[in-house]
Computed example of a mutant assay.
Amino acid sequence: MSDMGDRQGSDNTTHFGFKTVREDEKAQRVAEVFHSVAAKYDLMNDLMSGGIHRLWKRFTIELSGVRSGNRVLDIAGGTGDLTLKFSRLVGPEGQVVLADINDSMLKVGRDRLLDRGVAGNVTFVQADAEALPFPDNHFDCITIAFGLRNVTHKERAIESMLRVLKPGGRLLVLEFSKPNNPLLSKVYDKYSFNVLPVMGKLITNDSESYRYLAESIRMHPDQETLKAMMEDAGFVRVSYHNMTGGIVALHRGIKP
Protein backbone atom coordinates (compact mmCIF):
# COMPACT_ATOMS: atom_id res chain seq x y z
CA MET A 1 0.00 0.00 0.00
CA SER A 2 1.50 3.33 -0.97
CA ASP A 3 1.42 6.34 1.29
CA MET A 4 -1.52 8.07 -0.30
CA GLY A 5 -1.63 10.65 2.46
CA ASP A 6 1.63 12.12 1.21
CA ARG A 7 1.10 11.79 -2.52
CA GLN A 8 -2.56 12.54 -3.07
CA GLY A 9 -2.18 14.29 -6.41
CA SER A 10 -1.23 17.84 -7.20
CA ASP A 11 -4.37 19.60 -5.97
CA ASN A 12 -2.96 20.03 -2.44
CA THR A 13 -5.36 17.55 -0.89
CA THR A 14 -4.58 14.77 1.57
CA HIS A 15 -6.34 12.16 3.66
CA PHE A 16 -8.00 12.78 6.99
CA GLY A 17 -8.96 9.22 7.79
CA PHE A 18 -10.99 8.09 4.79
CA LYS A 19 -12.00 11.65 3.86
CA THR A 20 -10.12 13.83 1.38
CA VAL A 21 -9.40 17.31 2.74
CA ARG A 22 -7.20 20.27 1.84
CA GLU A 23 -3.67 19.96 3.20
CA ASP A 24 -4.02 23.19 5.18
CA GLU A 25 -7.17 21.75 6.79
CA LYS A 26 -5.67 18.47 8.00
CA ALA A 27 -3.44 19.87 10.76
CA GLN A 28 -6.40 21.73 12.27
CA ARG A 29 -8.63 18.67 12.12
CA VAL A 30 -6.00 16.46 13.73
CA ALA A 31 -5.52 19.14 16.41
CA GLU A 32 -9.26 19.07 17.16
CA VAL A 33 -9.15 15.28 17.57
CA PHE A 34 -6.37 15.48 20.16
CA HIS A 35 -7.83 18.51 21.95
CA SER A 36 -10.94 16.38 22.37
CA VAL A 37 -9.25 13.23 23.67
CA ALA A 38 -6.23 14.65 25.59
CA ALA A 39 -7.66 14.41 29.10
CA LYS A 40 -8.65 10.72 28.75
CA TYR A 41 -5.86 9.72 26.34
CA ASP A 42 -4.00 7.37 28.71
CA LEU A 43 -7.18 5.68 29.91
CA MET A 44 -8.32 5.11 26.34
CA ASN A 45 -4.90 3.69 25.37
CA ASP A 46 -5.15 1.15 28.19
CA LEU A 47 -8.71 0.20 27.26
CA MET A 48 -8.11 0.04 23.49
CA SER A 49 -5.01 -2.12 23.73
CA GLY A 50 -5.78 -4.06 26.90
CA GLY A 51 -2.67 -2.43 28.37
CA ILE A 52 -0.42 -3.99 25.69
CA HIS A 53 0.71 -0.52 24.52
CA ARG A 54 2.94 -0.47 27.60
CA LEU A 55 4.81 -3.56 26.33
CA TRP A 56 5.17 -2.03 22.86
CA LYS A 57 6.68 1.09 24.41
CA ARG A 58 8.96 -0.93 26.69
CA PHE A 59 10.38 -2.74 23.65
CA THR A 60 10.93 0.65 21.98
CA ILE A 61 12.94 1.82 25.00
CA GLU A 62 15.01 -1.37 24.96
CA LEU A 63 15.80 -1.06 21.25
CA SER A 64 16.65 2.65 21.52
CA GLY A 65 20.05 2.04 23.11
CA VAL A 66 19.64 5.28 25.09
CA ARG A 67 22.12 5.65 27.92
CA SER A 68 23.40 8.18 30.45
CA GLY A 69 24.28 11.58 29.01
CA ASN A 70 22.34 11.12 25.75
CA ARG A 71 20.14 13.74 24.14
CA VAL A 72 16.72 12.34 23.15
CA LEU A 73 13.79 13.79 21.20
CA ASP A 74 10.36 12.25 21.82
CA ILE A 75 8.16 13.51 18.95
CA ALA A 76 4.38 13.36 19.35
CA GLY A 77 5.32 12.55 22.93
CA GLY A 78 1.78 13.23 24.13
CA THR A 79 1.32 12.33 27.76
CA GLY A 80 4.98 11.50 28.28
CA ASP A 81 5.19 7.70 28.66
CA LEU A 82 8.47 7.41 26.74
CA THR A 83 9.85 10.72 28.02
CA LEU A 84 9.45 9.53 31.63
CA LYS A 85 11.55 6.42 30.96
CA PHE A 86 14.14 8.31 28.88
CA SER A 87 14.59 10.98 31.56
CA ARG A 88 15.65 8.25 33.99
CA LEU A 89 17.99 6.61 31.45
CA VAL A 90 19.84 9.77 30.38
CA GLY A 91 20.30 11.00 33.95
CA PRO A 92 21.23 14.53 35.06
CA GLU A 93 23.88 14.90 32.33
CA GLY A 94 21.43 14.06 29.55
CA GLN A 95 18.43 15.84 28.07
CA VAL A 96 15.01 14.74 26.84
CA VAL A 97 12.78 16.97 24.71
CA LEU A 98 9.10 16.10 24.67
CA ALA A 99 7.72 17.63 21.47
CA ASP A 100 4.12 17.63 20.31
CA ILE A 101 2.30 19.76 17.74
CA ASN A 102 -0.81 19.73 19.92
CA ASP A 103 -0.92 22.18 22.82
CA SER A 104 -3.53 20.19 24.78
CA MET A 105 -1.47 16.99 24.67
CA LEU A 106 1.68 18.89 25.59
CA LYS A 107 0.00 20.40 28.66
CA VAL A 108 -1.28 16.99 29.80
CA GLY A 109 2.21 15.52 29.34
CA ARG A 110 3.92 18.38 31.15
CA ASP A 111 1.52 18.25 34.13
CA ARG A 112 1.82 14.48 34.36
CA LEU A 113 5.62 14.50 34.32
CA LEU A 114 5.89 17.38 36.79
CA ASP A 115 3.52 15.48 39.13
CA ARG A 116 5.96 12.56 38.96
CA GLY A 117 8.88 14.77 39.90
CA VAL A 118 10.45 14.88 36.43
CA ALA A 119 11.83 18.34 35.76
CA GLY A 120 15.56 18.94 35.53
CA ASN A 121 16.46 17.10 32.33
CA VAL A 122 13.19 17.40 30.39
CA THR A 123 12.02 20.31 28.24
CA PHE A 124 8.68 20.71 26.45
CA VAL A 125 8.45 22.10 22.92
CA GLN A 126 5.42 22.63 20.71
CA ALA A 127 6.78 21.57 17.33
CA ASP A 128 5.74 20.37 13.89
CA ALA A 129 7.49 17.11 12.93
CA GLU A 130 7.81 18.36 9.34
CA ALA A 131 9.95 21.34 10.39
CA LEU A 132 11.69 20.51 13.66
CA PRO A 133 13.05 23.66 15.39
CA PHE A 134 16.37 22.12 16.41
CA PRO A 135 19.94 22.39 15.07
CA ASP A 136 21.53 19.82 12.75
CA ASN A 137 23.24 16.77 14.28
CA HIS A 138 21.78 17.43 17.73
CA PHE A 139 20.12 14.25 19.09
CA ASP A 140 21.43 10.75 19.83
CA CYS A 141 17.98 9.21 19.50
CA ILE A 142 14.53 10.22 18.22
CA THR A 143 11.30 8.36 18.90
CA ILE A 144 7.85 8.94 17.45
CA ALA A 145 5.18 6.67 18.91
CA PHE A 146 1.72 6.57 17.31
CA GLY A 147 2.25 9.99 15.75
CA LEU A 148 3.60 9.55 12.24
CA ARG A 149 0.25 8.51 10.78
CA ASN A 150 -1.18 11.94 11.70
CA VAL A 151 1.56 13.83 9.83
CA THR A 152 0.49 15.27 6.46
CA HIS A 153 3.86 14.96 4.66
CA LYS A 154 5.54 11.95 6.18
CA GLU A 155 8.61 12.16 3.93
CA ARG A 156 9.28 15.72 5.09
CA ALA A 157 8.99 14.65 8.71
CA ILE A 158 11.40 11.71 8.26
CA GLU A 159 13.90 14.00 6.49
CA SER A 160 13.55 16.56 9.30
CA MET A 161 14.28 13.84 11.87
CA LEU A 162 17.35 12.71 9.91
CA ARG A 163 18.67 16.29 9.87
CA VAL A 164 18.54 16.78 13.64
CA LEU A 165 20.04 13.37 14.47
CA LYS A 166 23.77 13.04 15.07
CA PRO A 167 25.66 10.69 12.72
CA GLY A 168 25.12 7.22 14.21
CA GLY A 169 21.93 8.44 15.87
CA ARG A 170 18.82 6.27 15.88
CA LEU A 171 15.23 6.90 14.78
CA LEU A 172 12.52 4.62 16.17
CA VAL A 173 9.01 4.79 14.72
CA LEU A 174 6.38 2.90 16.74
CA GLU A 175 3.12 2.83 14.83
CA PHE A 176 0.02 0.81 14.07
CA SER A 177 0.66 -1.21 10.95
CA LYS A 178 -0.74 -4.06 8.85
CA PRO A 179 -1.53 -7.44 10.49
CA ASN A 180 0.24 -10.28 8.70
CA ASN A 181 -2.59 -12.77 9.19
CA PRO A 182 -5.82 -12.38 7.13
CA LEU A 183 -8.04 -13.69 9.95
CA LEU A 184 -6.44 -11.34 12.50
CA SER A 185 -6.86 -8.51 10.00
CA LYS A 186 -10.63 -9.14 9.75
CA VAL A 187 -11.07 -9.33 13.52
CA TYR A 188 -8.97 -6.17 13.95
CA ASP A 189 -11.07 -4.31 11.36
CA LYS A 190 -14.32 -5.22 13.14
CA TYR A 191 -12.88 -4.17 16.48
CA SER A 192 -11.50 -0.87 15.11
CA PHE A 193 -14.62 0.27 13.28
CA ASN A 194 -17.31 -1.10 15.60
CA VAL A 195 -15.88 -1.20 19.13
CA LEU A 196 -13.47 1.78 19.20
CA PRO A 197 -16.03 4.50 18.31
CA VAL A 198 -18.45 3.10 20.93
CA MET A 199 -15.66 3.04 23.53
CA GLY A 200 -14.74 6.61 22.57
CA LYS A 201 -18.35 7.70 23.00
CA LEU A 202 -18.62 6.08 26.44
CA ILE A 203 -15.27 7.30 27.83
CA THR A 204 -14.73 10.68 26.13
CA ASN A 205 -18.21 11.41 24.71
CA ASP A 206 -16.52 11.52 21.30
CA SER A 207 -17.02 8.67 18.84
CA GLU A 208 -15.90 10.63 15.76
CA SER A 209 -12.32 11.14 16.99
CA TYR A 210 -11.92 7.41 17.51
CA ARG A 211 -13.46 6.67 14.13
CA TYR A 212 -10.80 8.97 12.65
CA LEU A 213 -8.06 7.16 14.59
CA ALA A 214 -9.24 3.81 13.18
CA GLU A 215 -9.34 5.22 9.65
CA SER A 216 -5.93 6.88 9.98
CA ILE A 217 -4.41 3.51 10.91
CA ARG A 218 -5.75 1.99 7.68
CA MET A 219 -4.34 4.85 5.58
CA HIS A 220 -0.85 4.57 7.11
CA PRO A 221 1.90 2.95 4.97
CA ASP A 222 2.48 -0.76 5.55
CA GLN A 223 5.73 -2.08 7.02
CA GLU A 224 7.71 -2.39 3.79
CA THR A 225 6.50 0.97 2.45
CA LEU A 226 7.57 2.81 5.62
CA LYS A 227 10.94 0.99 5.57
CA ALA A 228 11.47 2.19 1.98
CA MET A 229 10.49 5.76 2.93
CA MET A 230 13.11 5.79 5.70
CA GLU A 231 15.75 4.44 3.33
CA ASP A 232 14.80 7.02 0.66
CA ALA A 233 15.26 9.79 3.25
CA GLY A 234 18.82 8.57 3.91
CA PHE A 235 18.57 6.20 6.87
CA VAL A 236 20.66 3.03 6.79
CA ARG A 237 20.31 -0.39 8.45
CA VAL A 238 16.55 0.11 8.49
CA SER A 239 14.66 -2.79 10.03
CA TYR A 240 11.29 -3.39 11.62
CA HIS A 241 9.83 -5.68 14.25
CA ASN A 242 6.19 -6.76 14.06
CA MET A 243 4.39 -6.96 17.38
CA THR A 244 0.99 -8.46 18.21
CA GLY A 245 0.77 -10.08 14.78
CA GLY A 246 1.74 -6.91 12.90
CA ILE A 247 -1.00 -4.76 14.45
CA VAL A 248 1.95 -2.63 15.56
CA ALA A 249 5.43 -2.37 14.04
CA LEU A 250 8.58 -0.76 15.38
CA HIS A 251 10.86 0.61 12.63
CA ARG A 252 14.47 1.51 13.42
CA GLY A 253 16.95 3.37 11.23
CA ILE A 254 20.46 4.81 11.72
CA LYS A 255 21.80 8.13 10.43
CA PRO A 256 25.02 7.39 8.50
Rank of each mutant, 00 (worst) to 15 (best):
S2F: 12
D3A: 02
G5Y: 06
G5D: 00
D6M: 08
Q8Y: 15
D11I: 13
F16Q: 01
K19S: 14
T20Y: 10
R22H: 10
R22P: 00
R22A: 07
D24K: 13
K26G: 04
V33Q: 00
V33F: 09
F34T: 01
H35F: 07
S36R: 08
S36G: 03
S36D: 09
V37D: 00
A39S: 14
Y41W: 10
N45K: 08
D46G: 04
L47M: 14
S49F: 12
G51C: 00
I52A: 01
I52T: 13
H53P: 00
W56T: 01
F59A: 02
I61S: 02
L63I: 13
S64I: 11
S64L: 09
V66F: 07
R67F: 07
S68T: 10
G69E: 02
V72K: 03
I75P: 04
G78N: 00
T83H: 05
T83E: 00
L84N: 02
L84W: 13
F86L: 06
F86Q: 00
L89E: 07
L89Y: 04
G91I: 09
G91Q: 05
E93N: 14
E93S: 14
G94D: 01
V96Q: 02
V96S: 01
V96M: 05
L98W: 11
I101W: 08
D103M: 09
D103L: 13
D103E: 15
S104R: 12
K107G: 03
V108W: 07
G109H: 09
L114P: 01
L114H: 13
V118N: 09
N121T: 04
T123R: 15
F124G: 06
Q126I: 14
Q126C: 13
D128S: 11
E130S: 09
F134G: 07
D136N: 15
H138R: 10
H138Q: 05
I142V: 15
T143W: 06
T143P: 06
I144F: 09
L148M: 14
L148H: 05
N150V: 01
E155L: 14
E155R: 11
E155I: 12
I158Y: 08
I158S: 01
E159H: 10
S160Q: 04
L162E: 08
R163G: 03
V164C: 13
V164A: 05
L165A: 14
G168Y: 11
G168S: 03
R170K: 15
V173S: 06
E175R: 06
P179W: 11
S185G: 02
K186H: 10
K186W: 13
D189Q: 11
D189H: 13
D189R: 14
V195P: 04
G200C: 12
L202Q: 10
N205E: 12
E208Y: 12
E208I: 13
Y210M: 08
R211M: 14
Y212Q: 00
A214V: 15
S216P: 08
I217C: 07
R218I: 11
R218D: 15
H220N: 10
D222A: 01
D222C: 05
E224I: 06
L226I: 11
L226A: 02
L226T: 06
K227S: 04
M230S: 04
M230A: 04
E231I: 15
A233C: 05
V236A: 09
R237C: 05
S239E: 14
H241Q: 13
M243R: 04
T244E: 07
T244A: 15
T244N: 11
G246V: 00
I247M: 09
H251D: 02
R252E: 09
G253Q: 03
I254R: 04
I254G: 00
